[in-house]
Nucleic acid binder design. Structure first.
Length: 580
RNA sequence: GCGCCCGUAGCUCAGCAGGAUAGAGCACAGGUUUCCUAAACCUGGGGUCACAGGUUCGAAUCCUGUCGGGCGCGCCA
């Protein structure tokens, strides 16, 4: 039950009724009309701006329109009072009867409470992480990984058909470097002294296992062969093992993407060639020259004619090369083919989670989708994640690109646990930089939001356990007498819960899962306040042995609050703990 | 030079889809425990929402410009 959607509907009905009576013009655009919780609780439970927004198109004074609407709304079920305030707000004070209905609904919805059909089953693709398969994930991948995963879950909960995807860059020069690095480790595994790893190759120890696997599988036979003979099999093996490593890293964060899409496959199936033909046929490809790049000019820059995609026709800043000087495809060319593949699979939203340093990609990705699907047919949404700065006891953690001096994703997860990593990565909006202090995020105090929210869930679980051992159990949605919950602290919790479905929809539309974290913090805060109030006002305690029905009702109330917390946490991918 | 992101309390940040008197935590000052987890709660002070225009009944929020900070602008991937 989404109270605000419900009352938005009532406002629409009231307007239709007024139109039928000839008091208001029909066919007004209601897209700007909102029914929302007022910031100030003294303004009531639901507030609508309808009269102000519609005054002009209706050709009426806001007050006059508000007056008419107000009368209709005041007569609606569950509305105790409707009043006009400020410049034309209509504030609805709900009848106490609404809250028991709401709680009963939340309680019966259980783990579905808050979910909606907003997305109407629209197909959405969320691509995230997509790190090069040349080594384990490092801490920089953490944020995008968690963000993408939570966003996918959020969209799933709000009625979209989501595919979680990882694009494997297994076709470029970097995987050849990987293969050469693995080949050295292969020789090492065969007993050769390889000395220092030459500059330009990957020095990490994680390739030793690849060398050993190669030695075991192929024996010494590659050592006598030229690179052209061993490169391919070594590369395949190395990529496969790196992807296993990466999948393990992601699994440690409870991330399991469904599709791992190979860039190389786009070449072998001819999809890239096919895509360029299609683009060409549509007239988006031409031979031409590009201006010298601004900023730092590459050393090997040469002015020459090349095959270009006319992305400027779709809002990009410059046209993009499709072929390199040696005639092979650019990375961009396979990217276009990949976009095309996604579009042909029927996705209406292509969502990309990228690091902030990829800001320059946004326009070209949008241009590609417009060129292939047609303008406005497919929505390309890019969310950029800013850097995470690591701290240890207030001191920044130094990292160098040199061997062994970067912090891996696994290091962080192993040290503080997946729940802490996930919550903290989402306790900041994605485009803001984030400080991550190992000491602070594991602290067991209210200064630590992960703990604070988990603690609320654990406290509820604790009371439910105690109640059960004393012979109480949560009343069913039908039997609970939620009308007994009338204290301001109880109502504060209920009102907060009522905002949850609307919050999830807004977060989904804005592609901002961090809103859930902040919501959960607020909900936990309301709950802790209610808990403590019971210390001074014993009649507010959850378990009151002499009042069986009230206690069972409060247990049902707690169960409903717990679903709110657990459902929010589950979208974030954080385990709701039962005790701490 | 151009593009994108950011600028809100002393600090770290929210601000929901343009709404009413801009919020929270930290820090600071004070209070609450014979009682379901005090690992918590309550009370208090603290603001030129970077700046200047514009749109609007209404702007921290949308548009333009300026200043300050970050990132990007390669036939790399």
């Amino acid at each position: 039950m989404n109270l605000f959607a419900h009352f938005h509907g009532l406002v629409e009905q009231a307007l239709q009724a007024l139109a039928a009576e000839g008091l208001v013009p029909g066919g007004l655009d209601l897209s700007r009309v909102v029914a929302e919780p007022p910031r100030d609780p003294s303004h009531g439970d639901v507030s609508t701006n309808a009269a102000m927004v519609l005054a002009k198109p209706a050709g009426m004074a806001p007050k006059a329109l508000a007056d008419l609407l107000c009368k209709k709304l005041a007569a609606a079920p569950d509305v105790a009072a409707a009043e006009i305030a400020g410049p034309g707000f209509i504030n609805l004070r709900l009848a106490p009867s609404i809250w028991p209905k709401f709680l009963a609904s939340a309680l019966s919805l259980k783990e579905k409470f808050g979910h909606s059909t907003l997305g109407r089953g629209e197909k959405v693709n969320v691509e995230y992480v997509s790190a090069n398969p040349t080594g384990p994930l490092h801490v920089g991948h953490c944020r995008g990984a968690v963000f993408g995963d939570a966003l996918a879950a959020l969209l799933g909960a709000t009625g979209y058909a989501v595919s979680k995807e990882y694009y494997i860059n297994d076709a470029g020069a970097q995987v050849d470097t990987l293969a050469r690095s693995a080949f050295l480790r292969y020789k090492e595994a065969l007993g050769e002294n390889i000395g220092e790893i030459p500059a330009g190759l990957y020095p990490g120890d994680y390739l030793k296992a690849v060398g050993e696997a190669l030695a075991k599988e192929f024996g010494p036979r590659f050592t006598a062969l030229p690179e052209s003979e061993w490169l391919e099999p070594v590369r395949s093996k190395a990529i496969a093992m790196m992807m296993d490593l990466i999948r393990d890293d992601l699994a440690a964060l409870n991330i399991r993407q469904e599709v791992f899409f190979s860039e190389r496959s786009l070449h072998t199936t001819g999809a890239v060639a096919e895509t360029l033909t299609a683009l060409s046929t549509a007239g988006h490809v031409y031979q031409g020259r590009l201006d010298k790049p601004k900023g730092e000019v590459p050393e090997d820059w040469e002015d020459r004619e090349q095959t270009l995609f006319r992305s400027t026709a779709f809002g990009d800043d410059v046209d993009r090369p499709l072929l390199k000087s040696d005639g092979s495809y650019t990375y961009f060319a396979s990217d276009v083919a990949y976009s095309r593949d996604k579009i042909m699979r029927g996705f209406k939203q292509l969502i990309y989670i990228l690091g902030a340093d990829h800001g320059g990609y946004v326009k070209r990705l949008q241009a590609v989708a417009s060129a292939i699907a047609g303008e406005g047919k497919v929505q390309v949404i890019v969310r950029l994640c800013q850097l995470v700065k690591l701290f240890r006891n207030g001191e920044p953690v130094r990292m160098s690109k040199r061997a062994g001096e970067f912090v891996t994703l696994r290091d962080v997860v192993d040290e503080v646990g997946p729940d802490v990593v996930r919550f903290m990565m989402l306790y900041r909006k994605n485009e803001a930089p984030l400080d991550f202090d190992f000491a602070k995020v594991t602290e067991q105090s209210k200064d630590n939001p992960v703990f604070y929210v988990q603690y609320a869930h654990a406290r509820i679980s604790s009371v439910l356990r105690n109640a059960e051992s004393e012979g109480f159990k949560p009343a069913s949605p039908e039997d609970a007498e939620f009308n007994l919950l009338t204290d301001e602290a109880e109502l504060a919790v209920i009102r907060r819960m009522a905002a949850f479905p609307r919050l999830l929809e807004a977060a989904a539309l804005a592609h901002e899962p961090h809103r859930i974290s902040f919501y959960l913090y607020d909900l936990a805060s309301d709950f802790h306040a209610l808990w403590n109030k019971g210390k001074e006002a014993p009649h507010l305690r959850f378990i009151i042995p002499a009042q069986r029905q009230l206690t069972n009702t409060r247990m049902a109330f707690l169960a409903a609050i717990r679903y709110s917390l657990a459902n929010g946490l589950s979208i974030l991918g954080v385990t709701p703990v039962e005790e701490m």
